[in-house]
Amino acid sequence: MIDKQILKDLTVLYAEDEEAIQNGITETLNLFELNVICAKNGEEGLSIFKSSNKKIDLILTDIKMPKLDGLEMIKKIREIDKDIPVIITTAHQETTFLMQSIELNISAYVLKPIDIYKLQDNLIKAIEPKVLKEQLIEKNKKLQIEIQKNEEKQKVMEIQSRFAAMGEMISMIAHQWRQPLASIGTASFNLKYKLLSGKFDLTTKEGREEQTSFFTNKLDEIEFYVQNLTATIDDFRDFYKTDKIFIDTNIEKPLQNSLKIIQKDLQANNIEVILNHKSKKNIRVCENEITHVFINILKNAKDKFLEKNANDAKIEISTQDLDNSVKIDIYDNGGEIEKENIDFIFEPYFSTKKEKNGTGIGLYMSKIIIENNHNGKIYVSNTKGGVCFSIILESV
């Protein structure tokens, strides 16, 4: 129930042709802390309503008045404002008046002489829906502001996640390029050395053939390594495509794409990857986003191994078909997550990395991608002295 204070400072348009009644009721309304604008008849009341620069919250009107009666005044006001609360006062109990007042959406019908206590209750009941509506509108506005803030916050997180992933990818590219670039450097040095040192006797056919064979082999090597570098660029470029194109595919494809990008980084740190693929069903996914999730989980596992200087580091990836979905488990034996942390692992800006070089948004964005963008589930559990991330995606 709304408090009586709800009437405080509201403005009432009060139309009554009998001056004594109007003065008495106006005094009472002032006691209720209402602001009162008085009219002597319906015509004056309508004119005040149209011209008033002050917000009128409620109308209290007699029915029988000269020039324009109360019902006709309300009928014309309803053409301007369909929702303003209206209370009618009258000395009559005619059915005709009652039916007309119902058609005009009258909030209350008060008989004269007016009982001021009932009048107060009627005023509260009349204004209550309007106040509740205004409160709801205000709450909705605040809610929309909060939603907008959250959307903006999420966009910032997405950008931060992209930049963080980009830094990691550049590191991986550098690692994958190091060996081909070294091989290209070695091949070009050998070519240059052989050419300048005069190791080939170009005055003989055998010498020229030997030179041709040597140069051809070295150029073939350089071409092979250049193709390797180009393939790496293509892999990473595809990963960073921003268009969300959903395709029907087996989960093995985005898994293999993820491993293709991060495999050498894992191998360089002596991390064994065991893939146990049993799923046969197709799922509808945005490949780039799912690849992002897999790489993030694998990268976190690698960082944990390095932080703990783990021996016999191992990541096991398994897939299986459920009734209407596909389940992916990614397990690592790098130690369990502390019990006090496991419930917060998907929270934004939460990181367990001791060196504090983690952004704390990777797993949060992974959860958004799986649950919001793919209508799936992702959760984490401690098992077998390590951690298992489980992802469930609907099959098609």
Rank of each mutant, 00 (worst) to 15 (best):
K64W: 03
R162D: 14
I63P: 01
N23Y: 08
T11V: 09
S171W: 04
Q154F: 11
Y117L: 14
K353M: 06
A174I: 02
T212C: 08
N276Y: 05
L393D: 06
I37L: 14
I317Y: 06
I25W: 03
I283R: 08
L29A: 14
K125M: 11
I247Q: 10
G45W: 00
L322C: 05
S47D: 11
K141A: 12
E19Y: 06
D201N: 14
I345W: 08
I77V: 07
K353Y: 07
N217Q: 13
R162I: 12
I297Q: 13
I48F: 03
M166A: 12
M65H: 08
L363K: 02
F163A: 13
T96Y: 04
D343H: 06
I63H: 01
A182W: 00
I245T: 15
E138Y: 05
Q211V: 00
E209F: 07
S52D: 10
L46C: 04
S51V: 00
A165V: 02
N341C: 12
G42T: 00
T89K: 04
E340N: 11
K192A: 15
K141P: 01
I370W: 06
K281H: 13
Q320I: 06
I59Q: 03
N375L: 11
Y193K: 13
Y364D: 08
G358H: 04
F239E: 13
R284L: 09
S279K: 04
R178H: 13
F350E: 11
R237F: 10
N35Y: 03
A301T: 05
D332G: 12
S197C: 07
Q100P: 08
N30R: 14
T291C: 15
N217F: 11
T249M: 13
E33C: 09
D235H: 09
E158D: 12
I378D: 11
I124F: 01
G24H: 04
K384P: 05
Q179I: 04
K280D: 15
L111T: 04
G376K: 00
N333V: 07
V396I: 12
T249C: 13
E338A: 14
N30W: 05
T249F: 07
Q211D: 06
F200Q: 11
S366V: 00
I392T: 09
V273Q: 11
D81P: 03
M172V: 03
I116A: 01
I315A: 10
L322I: 03
